[in-house]
């Protein structure tokens, strides 16, 4: 475990139980997942049971207990995207990457996820790679977009 890296996150907080979620968010952002050993330290430091940390880590969709890929790919399945073919877009992305939603490619480049709504409904269907939106997606654009991120 990289103690220094974890400390640099923990020192930004006062150590109250309500700091749990922001701390987990920071860890998720930096590590791209929540490593077990780190979670144990967090529980000790905030003086909360490990069960609580585990409950929170498994309740919220943003958190993952397994390592995620370099690029986070989120396909929107909001209502408008659903009506405009979001599901097919997802299936296409999924088969291009060879993974089901919720998984990461073996080369650790991409993690594929679905999201309830990205709030860009006027441009449905939408997907997001890391912080970039791709609007009015069509299946024939999928491989082009993915190419931009492939090594």
């Amino acid at each position: 475990m990289d103690v220094e890296r974890l400390e640099s996150i923990l020192t930004q907080y006062e150590g109250y139980p309500q700091d749990l979620i922001p701390i987990l968010q920071d860890i998720q952002d930096q590590y791209h997942y929540l490593p077990k050993d780190e979670l144990k330290v967090v529980a000790q430091r905030l003086n909360v049971p490990l069960t609580k940390v585990y409950s929170v880590a498994t309740f919220y969709k943003m958190f993952s207990l397994i390592p995620k890929g370099r690029h986070q790919l989120r396909v929107c399945l909001g209502t408008t995207c659903h009506l405009k073919g979001g599901q097919r877009l997802l299936e296409s992305v999924s088969s291009h990457l060879g993974i089901e939603p919720g998984y990461t490619t073996a080369d650790m480049q991409f993690s594929l996820e679905t999201v309830g709504c990205l709030g860009s409904c006027a441009q449905a269907p939408v997907m997001m790679v890391d912080d970039k939106y791709y609007a009015r997606m069509t299946i024939d654009k999928v491989s082009k977009v993915l190419k931009l991120y492939k090594e």
Binding site: Y16, P17, Q18, D19, L20, I21, L24, Q25, V48, K52, S55, V56, F59, Y60, K61, M62, F63, V115, G116
Partner: peptide, 20 residues
């Protein structure tokens, strides 16, 4: 952190408090 139910008042409060 990604939970639709947190739009519900009491769930939102629980979430700010650091709970599920």
């Amino acid at each position: 952190s990604g939970a639709f139910v947190c739009g519900e008042e009491t769930a939102l409060i629980a979430s700010i408090e650091g709970n599920i």
